[in-house]
Nucleic acid binder design. Sequence first.
DNA 1: CAATCATAGACTTTACGTATCTATGATAGC
DNA 2: GCTATCATAGATACGTAAAGTCTATGATTG
Lengths: 133, 133
Amino acid sequence: MKFTKATNYALHTMLYLAKEGAKQQPIGVQQLADHQQVSPTYLSKILTKLVKEGLITSSSGANGGYKLRNGWQQLSFFDIIQAIEGKASIFECSLHDEPACIVKRVMEKAEEQMEQELRQTTIASLLEGKSSE
Amino acid sequence: MKFTKATNYALHTMLYLAKEGAKQQPIGVQQLADHQQVSPTYLSKILTKLVKEGLITSSSGANGGYKLRNGWQQLSFFDIIQAIEGKASIFECSLHDEPACIVKRVMEKAEEQMEQELRQTTIASLLEGKSSE
DNA sequence: CAATCATAGACTTTACGTATCTATGATAGC
DNA sequence: GCTATCATAGATACGTAAAGTCTATGATTG
């Protein structure tokens, strides 16, 4: 579970889709990009990942765009982040011949605590609370 | 709380110092570097940070080197990592005018869970358990 | 068929961690 | 005091991955 700006864009996009396009028409990249002030081409790559991982769906052609998949209410922060960043751990031991590095074990446990929190938080749950973004 | 290879080196070094040099003579960079197969000059920078943050002490001249500070038994993973990486959060919102970004709040809470685990883990506690490294 | 939209690959740029080199300064022992 | 041993510090180079751009292709609507 690591983090980049792409993670950030993905999370904000998902939240935006949940608010603006839950049941309605799909939303195009342009609009999504405008909202976050990112270049559309760059955001496209991120969106494509989300499509491939099945978190959102896309439709080509006029009036096309992106919308959340069915059952998006179950999607957690963890799901979104993992779709973008993969499953790599935040920490890798630098020692060569240390398959059972004790430092790594500690870090993994700590990381697991963080991930658990992210698994519990859904975008749907955020919409119920205050919506500053 | 972010992580780099430097974090890794620092943690392993601290663990090594705790095992080999708790009360005895200081240990030189060369030996510490050999143990991890890192260049001494690079490790030096990391060690200097640890000195400045007060986690270890250094002594120049012949038979000089590094040893853990007094009261090292209290030092946690969190202390060590923060000494190297600073206090910067793992996540920064990319939106410009969003002082109270809800995404960031979620991430901070998750990060806090991880940090709490790291605060609880001391190098001393690891020495009591099995010592694969 | 033409406009609108997503997809994809190659490519460039930027940023930062990683690492090296070299010089300087402090201490211990002879 | 001299010398060897050790830490400290700054400048510099290197490598890699994220960040972002450009251009071409393919699908759908009207």
